[in-house]
């Protein structure tokens, strides 16, 4: 294709893109943000309640934090299994994705989805389809920080 017709094609594509942007409905950002704030905030406040409760029962801060994560993950797993977490996610958006419950939801949803493909290469393999990348990046950055720490403190 010569450059003139390529330019014409590009102009047509740009013009169409403008039309699409004009017509497609915009996400209701304010409403979404309010939902995200309230639901995400409540999940975190509930987490704080658990931390306070565990610490008042004699756990140290770090164990109370781990315990809280485990309880939140358990609840997210349960609600995902019962088919309720995705209903919450329709409204809460990032409010139910950003907390650790969203991470658990991604793991459980991926695992449940592939049950019919078998327990080893269905569930076992697919369980990490969303959570895998998350752990890869988390681990890698943590190791890099550790290496930098070694370099700069020695």
């Amino acid at each position: 294709m010569d450059s003139a017709s390529e330019q014409l094609k590009q102009a047509e594509i740009d013009e169409y893109d403008q039309l699409v942007k004009k017509i497609e409905p915009k996400p209701p950002v304010v409403k979404n943000c309010i939902w995200a704030f309230v639901v995400g905030g409540l999940i975190c406040a509930f987490g704080q309640l658990l931390i306070n409760f565990l610490m008042s029962n004699g756990l140290n801060q770090s164990d109370a934090g781990s315990g809280t994560s485990v309880i939140l993950i358990f609840l997210a797993t349960l609600f995902t299994g019962l088919g309720l977490y995705d209903e919450l996610g329709k409204y809460a958006g990032a409010g139910s994705i950003v907390p650790i419950t969203g991470f658990a939801n991604a793991i459980v949803a991926s695992a449940m989805e592939f049950r019919r493909e078998g327990y080893i290469f269905g569930v076992g393999a697919r369980i990490f389809s969303v959570a895998g990348p998350t752990l890869v990046f988390g681990f890698t950055v943590a190791v890099l920080v550790g290496l930098l720490k070694i370099i700069f403190t020695s």
Binding site: E24, P25, K26, G83, G89, K90, I97, A109, E113
Partner: peptide
């Protein structure tokens, strides 16, 4: 849905489009 998009039980907001 499972071939083209996200797992059924994952809590994601669907776009209006």
């Amino acid at each position: 849905e499972r071939q083209f998009r996200t797992p059924i039980e994952q809590g994601v907001q669907k776009s209006a489009t």
